[in-house]
Computed example of a mutant assay.
Amino acid sequence: MAIQQECARRIRRLQTELEKRDLDGALFAYPIDIYYFSGTRPNALLWIPTAGDPVLLVRKSLSRALAESAVADVRTFPPSRELPSVLGAARRVGLTFDVLPVQQLHFLNKVLPGCDFVDISALNRELRSIKSAWEMEKMKESAARLCAVFARIPEFLRPDMRELDLSAEIEYRARKQGCEGYVRLRAFNQELFRGIAASGESAARSGFFDGPATGSGLSSAAAHGASTAPIARNAPILVDYTGVFEGYIVDMTRMFVFGELHPEMRKAFDVALEIQDYLTENLRPGQDCAELFAGAVALAEAAGLGNHFMGAPGEQAKFVGHGVGLELDELPILAQGFQVPLQLGQTVAVEPKFAFPGKGVIGIENTFAVGPEGGTRLTRLADDLIQI
């Protein structure tokens, strides 16, 4: 019953916004959007009219969709010629252009020639960014389970073990906790396998991933995450992992070292904590995301670490925090140029980090909920640098 009420609330919010935009409805093809509004994840199309009841058109699996769907009207996907009858008199229809392949758009233009398709990507992402009390409980549970895994890392972290072995130990325990592992990313050409366990030079190796740390990975075809390199003494060990439980993602990073960090690295860690404190205090409704990023950059520059902030010099990520929920890259983004105010109930992974080519990556990351007095931390595990 809870998921049915939750999805009904989401659908009503969407319908209100569609009406404001003079749209007749929205058609969703992207699986996680369908899940958000229907509570099930089939291969399907979901039609949500501005007025009236939604219809879920399922290619596979119809039986599972019938059992799980919070949408009452679940049907077998019809022949193409019958699709117009589902939409009825609808003419202005919203689509999520940010994730819809051109081939699928051509298909819809062909089978629904009377429809004018309008991009509702921004609307959809904004609606999804604001978490309900029901969703917040899911994210708190995800955070608790991920923290339980991180808390055990000192039990199995050993000198000279390979990055790959460390990652396998973390992933094994996360899986035993119920981690689903589907780290969904909306951005084109981005992909991620669970997270990063990397140290020293290997952690600081740049790659395709749009973040401050990539890791060397296992090959050029999988250029992200742990490598087979051994973990060296006195090198920063970065453990940056997602937890995905019942679809909801949280993100966190903790630092470890065998021995002592170089003073430059220790300073960078302390500055990362200072930046996190500044952002936490300002994760309040109405605060401008671009201004928060600029404030974080100013703190890094004041410490003499601006060239290393959020990536290797010349290859720095232009954000310091990203929305999380059913996807890892939701709104809001604490980023350069993202001049958008925060809203109550948004959830943000704050990750101030510093990259030193040839030496390592160091920083911190926690997931927060935007609140009236600042950010409420969901990943409630001490930030301490763990020396072993």
Results as ranks from 00 to 15, higher is better:
S121R: 11
I196W: 06
A232E: 11
L23E: 06
L385N: 08
Q276I: 05
V239W: 08
F37H: 00
G195D: 06
A65Y: 03
D210Q: 11
W47Q: 07
G25N: 00
F245M: 03
Q339M: 05
I231A: 08
L342V: 10
N43G: 10
A51Y: 14
T280I: 02
D384E: 11
F156M: 08
K267V: 01
T367M: 06
A226K: 07
A223I: 05
L123F: 13
Q103A: 15
V250S: 06
A204L: 01
V111D: 01
A122K: 11
S61F: 02
R125V: 01
E191A: 15
N43E: 15
L14A: 08
A67Y: 01
A221G: 13
W134H: 15
V340G: 02
R162D: 09
S167A: 15
G306A: 05
F150L: 13
A148K: 07
K138N: 10
L23I: 08
S202F: 00
G178K: 09
I364Y: 05
G181K: 02
L127K: 03
E126N: 13
A70K: 00
H262K: 10
Q343G: 09
P154A: 12
L218M: 12
F309R: 04
N282R: 15
L192K: 07
Y182L: 14
L334D: 02
G304Y: 01
F188I: 13
A51N: 14
I120Q: 06
D116P: 06
V271G: 00
E180A: 08
G363L: 01
D98V: 10
L66T: 10
L46R: 05
E351R: 15
M139A: 08
I32M: 12
S216V: 08
E169L: 13
F209E: 07
L27T: 00
E171L: 09
N234A: 08
I153H: 01
A187Q: 14
Y172F: 13
A296R: 04
N124A: 14
K267D: 04
G88V: 10
V111E: 04
F256Q: 06
A65H: 04
P230M: 00
H224E: 12
I170M: 09
S38H: 07
L108N: 07
R59N: 08
L378A: 02
F258S: 10
Q316T: 09
V86H: 11
F256M: 02
L344E: 14
M310K: 07
G225K: 05
Q346Y: 04
A382K: 14
A221Q: 14
N189C: 12
F209N: 07
Q190D: 06
Q346D: 04
K20E: 13
G345Q: 09
M136L: 15
I3H: 12
T228M: 14
H106L: 13
G215M: 07
L14G: 05
D277T: 12
S206F: 12
T347Q: 10
G243V: 00
T16I: 12
G321W: 03
Y248N: 02
L27N: 03
A133Y: 11
A296Q: 01
F293C: 05
G178D: 11
F97K: 13
F269E: 01
L18G: 01
R175Q: 13
A89R: 09
